[in-house]
Computed example of a mutant assay.
Amino acid sequence: MPLRFVVLKDDFFIDETPLKGKYTVEDSDGEIIYYVEDITVKPELSFLELYGIIRLIHEESSELDNAEDIIRLTDSVEILEGGSIYLKVKIMGREFMFTELQLMSSVTLKRYMLRLGKYFNLKSGDWAPIVQFWLDTGNKTHEISDDEVLIEKSINYLKKCIIYTDIEKALGYHSLFYNVEEPSTVFCLVDSIIGALQIENRRKVRSVLSEYIAGDSVQKRVYGEKKRFWRFKIEECEINLAEQMHEHEEEVEEDGGF
């Protein structure tokens, strides 16, 4: 059985390690999973996991594959209200945040479990009873965390952006680049959204927005300079591709504000 893992660090490039050429990748509901057939590299992978660079995926027992088991393992639920609803769910001692969109399917829970090195094989019919249990038993509060505010600001910013198919036009505030070869994402210059959010800690922002960003950051050469972009998921970010394309939008002033 091949070794499987996910990468946790944005600045880790697997092709710059001895693992280059020894792996294959699979996109599992937006989560990039790496497969390595050569089990002799397990010590190297364990070392990377020790330092929080990757997370090895281990098969979970069949006792954790249905709604009843997830409900049994739920320690507490907090329902955060104030416009949109967020659920803060504590499972097996770990807290996970779910947005309204993420509650529509079990994909986010599966992703969280992958990052903990666990694989849950939930059936489609098991998800509705789990969410209903959380909603029925959760404690309601009107407090919104800093992370949730950051998510809302980021999505609001992205929804105001003009989308270009020419990357040279997507280097300022309120502009995104769309590549027809990657139809489910849009590219946002990291410097632009960081500047708009007015938060210097890029690693913090990337961590909070992890469910909205596809894979690692990517570099593209524009005007002879390397520019780093995050690929935001169109559906999760509620981006209206048709309406935000520059042919259909008026110009937005590049002031970096919201």
Results as ranks from 00 to 15, higher is better:
residue 29 D to K: 05
residue 97 M to C: 06
residue 116 L to I: 10
residue 93 G to R: 02
residue 97 M to N: 04
residue 39 I to D: 15
residue 94 R to P: 07
residue 65 D to L: 02
residue 80 L to M: 14
residue 120 F to S: 03
residue 33 I to L: 06
residue 107 V to D: 06
residue 123 K to C: 09
residue 39 I to W: 11
residue 80 L to T: 06
residue 101 L to Q: 01
residue 112 Y to T: 04
residue 40 T to C: 11
residue 66 N to P: 09
residue 121 N to D: 14
residue 78 E to A: 13
residue 116 L to D: 04
residue 116 L to T: 09
residue 93 G to N: 08
residue 26 E to W: 13
residue 102 Q to H: 04
residue 38 D to N: 11
residue 115 R to V: 08
residue 46 S to G: 10
residue 123 K to D: 14
residue 47 F to M: 13
residue 36 V to I: 15
residue 31 E to R: 00
residue 86 Y to R: 02
residue 34 Y to C: 02
residue 91 I to Q: 03
residue 34 Y to D: 04
residue 56 L to R: 07
residue 61 S to Y: 09
residue 42 K to T: 12
residue 125 G to K: 05
residue 125 G to Y: 12
residue 134 W to V: 02
residue 131 V to G: 02
residue 114 L to H: 03
residue 65 D to C: 08
residue 101 L to T: 04
residue 116 L to H: 06
residue 30 G to H: 05
residue 73 L to M: 13
residue 72 R to Y: 15
residue 28 S to K: 02
residue 53 I to D: 04
residue 127 W to P: 02
residue 52 G to V: 14
residue 67 A to F: 08
residue 55 R to Y: 11
residue 33 I to T: 04
residue 100 E to G: 00
residue 76 S to M: 12
residue 83 G to V: 10
residue 118 K to Q: 11
residue 65 D to I: 07
residue 114 L to P: 03
residue 54 I to Q: 01
residue 29 D to C: 06
residue 53 I to A: 07
residue 76 S to I: 12
residue 59 E to V: 11
